[in-house]
Amino acid sequence: MTDFDSMINSWRNINDVNKENPEDFFRLVKEKVKMQQRKMLIMNLLLSTTFIITLFVILSIWLAFPERTIYFYGSLIAMGLSMILFLLITWSGFQLKKYDPQLEARRFISGHKRKLKNRIFALKYATPAFLGLLIINFTLYFQDVLVNESLTFKILAYSLTIFWIAGLGFAFNKNRIRSIHENEKLLIDFNKWNEYEK
């Protein structure tokens, strides 16, 4: 055996010198994860509050301009809907009720499965719907505000906006599809786990 091989062997025999109790370590990790989940909850709540304030602003704009065209109000509705949808997508990735994987393994798994199903649904349908609503929103709004503009300007405004939103959708589509696959694979694994349990 060469010196190098013997070094490798010695190296592989190093054991963790911190003789931590696995239970203590597991508890510490859980606490940190819980702290991060709390942070996520606060972020989501802040986002929701901002969106709710914006929805009130939309409502007050509606009330402040009583004699605008149907397109104007249509665009406000589309904007409100898209914001609500965005909030639903944000919350779909959050699991409100937490279960301890050690104490309540079955509930932990079913909670995760529910969350995964929500996320798959949000990624498959809600995200394209959100982009669709954004396009509708801008189209209706332009119908109202660009009524006196030249045809060239209208074409430019519509095409740039639609290309920009479609571009965004295209840029994130790969990630969206990958996330759907990841979530589906994990869901299959969780289902298998349930099968073993039976």
Binding site: F25, V29, V33, H181, E182, K185, L186
Partner: peptide, 13 residues
């Protein structure tokens, strides 16, 4: 360990 825990959902196989 925390990151492994959080990343379980991203494991693609």
């Amino acid at each position: 360990y925390i990151q492994i825990w959080k990343s379980i959902e991203q494991f693609e196989g």
